[in-house]
Each structure stands twice: as C-alpha cells, then as structure tokens.
Design a protein around this nucleic acid. Structure first.
Lengths: 149, 149
DNA sequence: CACAGTGAGTCCGTAAAACAAACCGACTAG
DNA sequence: CTAGTCGGTTTGTTTTACGGACTCACTGTG
C-alpha cells in the first residue's frame, strides 16, 4: 500500500494555473501581441470552447485581463497582468530548449533583445547572483538528504 | 472563415514533448532525485497507467533514460539525459513564479545554490549577456511589425 | 514451507475533457 | 438586403484520464 501525498510545491501550483493544454500557447500569443479571440485561435489551433475556458481561467488566475475595446457590439482583448508578464522566463525557457533540443527545430526568433540578438534564460543564485551553469552547481534538497544530481 | 495555421514554434514543439499533464511533475521528481516508478507516483499523484505512458514518451523524446538497476525481477530507474537536464530553467521558472504569484505559496526551497541560497531565472541577451529586467527590454517580433509590450 | 509484501507495471469500466461542426447575436460594409 | 466579422455557446462524438483490481517475479518473515 503506497500512500500518495502529492508534493505541495510551487511548480505544481503554477502548473495548476497554466499547465493545461493550450494555456501556455495562449500566453505565447499574448506575449507576441496577439490579443483577440479569433487571432489567438488561428495561431494556436485551440478549439473555440476550450479557448474560452482557458481564457476565463487565466483571467480568474490573475494572469490575463479581459478588456473591452468596443461596445455595440462588445469586443474584447486580452492583456497580460504583471503576474502574467512574470511568466516570460518560462516561455523563454521552453523556447530555448526547443531551439537546442528539438530534432527539427522550427523557425524561432520571436523574442529578441532590443540589440537584435536572441534572448536566453540563465539560472542564477538569488543571493550572490552567481550563474549556475553546467548543471552541477545546483543542489537539490530532499527531506531526507541532499543531492547534487 | 478563419484559416487556422498553428504557429510552428519551438515553444509549441517543446510543449508537445513535455506539456502533457504530469510530465513536468515527473521531471521535477527526477530532478529532485526521485527515480523509481512507485516513488514518482507517490510524489506526483499520477495514475499508474498515465505515469507509464508519460515515462515512455519522455524516454522516447530523449529526455529521460530508463536504466535497469537489477534483474530478477527487472527493476528500473529513470535518469535525466543532458537534454532533460536542460529543462531545468523551465522548472526553476515555474517554481519562481509560484513562489511570487501564487495566492497561497506552498513550501518551496527545493532547488538551492551550493551557498544555501535560493535560485532564480534571469532572461539575458544571448549576445551581449545584458539582463532584460523590468519587462520593457524584450522586443517581440511579428511578421508584420514589432512591439515592445 | 506458507504467507505477506514490494516494484513495476497492465487491464478494465467509468468519468471527464477535448474536439469538430453547427449555430447565435449584434453589429458593419457593400 | 446580403455577406462577413467577432466572440463566443451548444451539441454530439471521440479521446483521455482516472481508480481499482489484478499480474508477475521475486524477497523477507515466521
């Protein structure tokens, strides 16, 4: 008999909000400036009803804001809240991984620095700011014992 | 009539491999040093058959490696490949967002620097290495026109 | 030896979710 | 008047997830 106690952890909590199918693609679009229902749908391929559900749940999670940009008839645009903008490193990280590790990497340069170059993520120590490259520098803690991977 | 052409982009490509339910939680566990089926199941809560499917697909994506650690009976452990380790920034990003933006952030410190402090992600320019903080520094390109969000 | 337990699953029936296609309401443009 | 746009909702079907029972090849306990 195995007792199942899913780890309460911020990764799981975040995935509860943005980890469902289409959610991160929706956010990608909004990051790219695509704010309207039909356009988000066209660029992601999400079914309309699912897209509606995702937009509502991202809105109620405080990640997107639904703004009316005209009345008569009412039309809406979706904008990132500050919390939504804070997901940028996640998208950049997924993008960077895809560019490096997908067997057939699709055309990529969509997030670039103002200097014109590509952007990437870096894991750094929150205290000393030292970059942790090469995998070995991050230590992973367990309740019982630690490891360095 | 809207023509739907989902963007071929590395974010979508990466999510095809790791974006299904449970996949990223499985990877979190392996990052934490939890390598065996029953333990991964206990710490994530994934149903057994789904977990089997995810482990197989992560394996065939080259993200996990399934290693036999005993014969008679055969028993297996899952290890990160280099490609799998390269997903670390994504997990750290999700974790960091959860710590900062979840209404009720769960106990968090699981990835720490060897100096004992927490880690975080930084988005930097791939060329000049300049950090892009404050949201405004990243430029997002569109086929038709660019924006600064 | 019999019996309980473990690890890594598979199988099965049900419940939930996704999907595609059709439809809708309030307009605008021709 | 007709067609089209936008932002959805509704409906029916297919896919997926889920929980529980079961299996197989052992190991350890009395």
């Amino acid at each position: 008999m195995v007792d199942i106690q899913p780890r309460a952890c911020p990764i799981a909590g975040t995935l509860d909000l943005v980890g469902e199918r289409w959610s991160l693609l929706v956010l990608r679009e909004v990051f790219l400036g695509v704010r309207r229902f039909a356009d988000i749908r066209a660029n992601t391929g999400a079914p309309r009803d699912v897209l509606t559900k995702r937009l509502r749940s991202l809105e109620s999670a405080g990640i997107l804001e639904r703004r009316r940009y005209q009345d008569h008839p009412p039309r809406f645009e979706y904008h990132l809240t500050p919390a939504g903008q804070a997901l940028e490193p996640v998208l950049i990280g997924l993008r960077e991984w895809g560019i490096r590790h997908l067997q057939d990497p699709p055309p990529a340069p969509r997030f670039v620095h103002t200097c014109g170059a590509d952007v990437k993520t870096r894991v750094v120590c929150a205290e000393c700011g030292e970059p942790l490259e090469g995998g070995g520098l991050v230590t992973v803690l367990e309740e019982t014992g630690a490891g360095t991977r």
